[in-house]
């Protein structure tokens, strides 16, 4: 499977990718995007099987990215990996069509719990 990791922080993209491997998801192809706008382009060009996106990003936020994808008819499985995890954001994410939010800081165990059903 192909996973798109969208985060404006290079180090957080690296941590997410490292944690995916630590969680046992090390045989998947990873593509990266530094903001929501780049992630939207990458979804179109790379056709990923899963998007793991930060919420707070320049150019296009994670929730704007999700809304743009769904408005264009794209139904790629989408989850947020974000430092903010309020009830309000969870409600917005679910209403927008996201699967769930993973809050930072996370562990490999968290990734295994939340992503095993999707990534196998």
């Amino acid at each position: 499977m192909k996973i798109l990791v969208a985060d404006d922080s290079r180090v957080m993209r690296q941590i997410v990718i490292r944690t995916l491997r630590q969680a046992g998801f090390d045989d998947h192809e990873i593509v990266e995007a530094p903001d929501g706008a780049a992630a939207k382009d990458s979804v179109a060009s790379e056709n990923p099987d899963l998007v793991l996106s930060d919420w707070n990003m320049p150019n296009m936020s994670g929730i704007e990215l999700l809304h743009a994808l769904r408005a264009s008819g794209n139904t790629v499985p989408f989850a947020f990996v974000t430092s903010e995890c309020s009830d309000e954001m969870i409600a917005k994410a679910e209403a927008g069509g996201a699967l769930f939010l993973i809050s930072k800081p996370f562990t490999a165990e968290t990734f295994r719990d939340r992503l095993s059903d999707i990534l196998g």
Binding site: S9, N56, S83, E84, S103, K104, P105
Partner: peptide, 13 residues
């Protein structure tokens, strides 16, 4: 910056 972002996000919650 990301350290501040993660700490700030958790504090904000």
């Amino acid at each position: 910056g990301e350290l501040a972002n993660v700490l700030g996000g958790n504090v904000k919650s």
